[in-house]
């Protein structure tokens, strides 16, 4: 084999490498699927998911500025969402310091008040929650909630979420001692607002 042919093959092979993970799943679905699901949220102030991948330029400054290392960066395995920020709340939740909002150069994260953040909504799984099942008098989520008595109240010693005040920061999910077999907690964050249509 000539050296030139060898190098051309080498170059061609390397070019095809990024396509490998795409072949393992149905192509279009894996490229376009949004990574935002239960407990997988965008940083605070994010525009709806419909607009987010278009607006975000993947500069990673929110990741660099986050003092809690809550924000992680997706790579090419996330398809067109590669390079966008994501918070995995059961690993490290968002402490709502709002520093990422200050540095976002494209307005993908918009300047809003802490109390108006809607990253998602905490939803209690009453079949797993120790207080709801009646196993123990657990009130960890109530204690850890940054808006206690507003976002999470105790109703007959059982936690109840108020959707008018819950920011979806995930502190409750992070603190929840109950983990189900599928890895979810007894209280999970559902990114309801990310699925909203852009109204403007």
């Amino acid at each position: 084999m000539k050296r030139r042919t060898f190098l051309q093959l080498l170059g061609g092979g390397t070019a095809c490498l990024p396509l490998l993970p795409l072949l393992t799943k149905p192509l279009a679905a894996s490229i376009l699927k949004s990574p935002v699901t239960t407990n997988r949220l965008r940083p605070p102030g994010a525009v709806p998911e419909e607009l987010f991948p278009a607006k975000c330029i993947r500069c990673g400054r929110c990741v660099e500025v986050c003092p809690y290392r809550s924000i992680t960066l997706l790579d090419i395995r996330a398809g067109i969402h590669a390079g966008t920020p994501l918070i995995e709340v059961e690993n490290i939740p968002c402490y709502l310091c709002m520093k990422c909002v200050d540095v976002c150069p494209t307005g993908s994260l918009q300047r809003i008040k802490q109390t108006e953040v809607r990253m998602g909504l905490a939803v209690i799984n009453t079949f797993y929650c120790a207080a709801w099942v009646g196993k123990v008098m657990c009130r960890t989520c109530y204690d850890k909630c940054p808006f206690a008595e507003k976002a999470i109240r105790l109703d007959q010693l059982r936690p109840v979420v108020d959707q008018s005040a819950c920011t979806g920061c995930g502190l409750c999910t992070y603190a929840c001692p109950v983990t189900a077999a599928d890895g979810s907690k007894a209280i999970n964050i559902e990114p309801l607002y990310a699925r909203e249509k852009v109204t403007r």
Binding site: L7, P18, V63, R69, D75, A82
Partner: peptide
């Protein structure tokens, strides 16, 4: 940044290797 923050490389870095290979030609 990925190396410092997450102690890993992003997968798309293969593109850089490809550019380096093309530089041989």
């Amino acid at each position: 940044m990925m190396l410092v923050f997450f102690k890993t490389f992003a997968f798309e870095g293969v593109v850089l290797v490809l550019i380096l290979c093309l530089e041989l030609l």
